Amino acid sequence: LLPSFEIGAWTEDDVYCWVQQLVRKGDSSAEMSVYASLFKENNITGKRLLLLEEEDLKDMGIVSKGHIIHFKSAIEKLTHDYIN
Rank of each mutant, 00 (worst) to 15 (best):
L1M: 15
L1E: 15
L2I: 15
P3W: 04
P3L: 05
S4P: 12
F5D: 15
F5S: 14
F5V: 14
F5N: 14
F5G: 15
E6F: 02
E6K: 05
I7S: 04
G8V: 06
G8H: 15
A9L: 13
A9K: 14
A9Q: 15
W10M: 02
T11D: 08
T11N: 07
D14H: 06
D14G: 03
D14K: 00
V15K: 03
V15H: 06
V15R: 00
Y16W: 03
Y16F: 10
C17G: 08
W18H: 04
W18T: 04
V19R: 02
Q20G: 05
Q20C: 08
Q20N: 10
V23I: 12
R24A: 14
K25W: 07
K25T: 12
K25S: 12
S28H: 09
S28N: 14
S29I: 08
A30I: 07
A30M: 11
E31D: 14
M32E: 07
S33Y: 06
Y35A: 06
A36I: 02
S37M: 04
L38T: 09
L38H: 08
F39D: 01
K40I: 06
E41H: 12
E41F: 01
N43R: 14
I44Q: 04
T45L: 02
T45G: 03
T45P: 01
G46D: 00
L49Y: 05
L52D: 04
E53R: 11
E53H: 04
E54G: 03
E55W: 04
L57H: 01
K58N: 08
M60N: 02
M60F: 01
M60V: 04
G61I: 03
I62R: 01
I62F: 07
S64E: 14
K65Y: 09
K65M: 09
K65E: 14
K65S: 10
G66E: 15
I68K: 06
I68D: 02
I68E: 02
I69Q: 14
I69K: 14
I69E: 15
H70W: 14
A74G: 05
A74F: 04
I75R: 07
E76Q: 11
K77H: 09
K77Y: 03
L78A: 03
L78V: 02
L78N: 02
T79P: 04
H80N: 13
D81T: 12
I83R: 15
I83T: 15
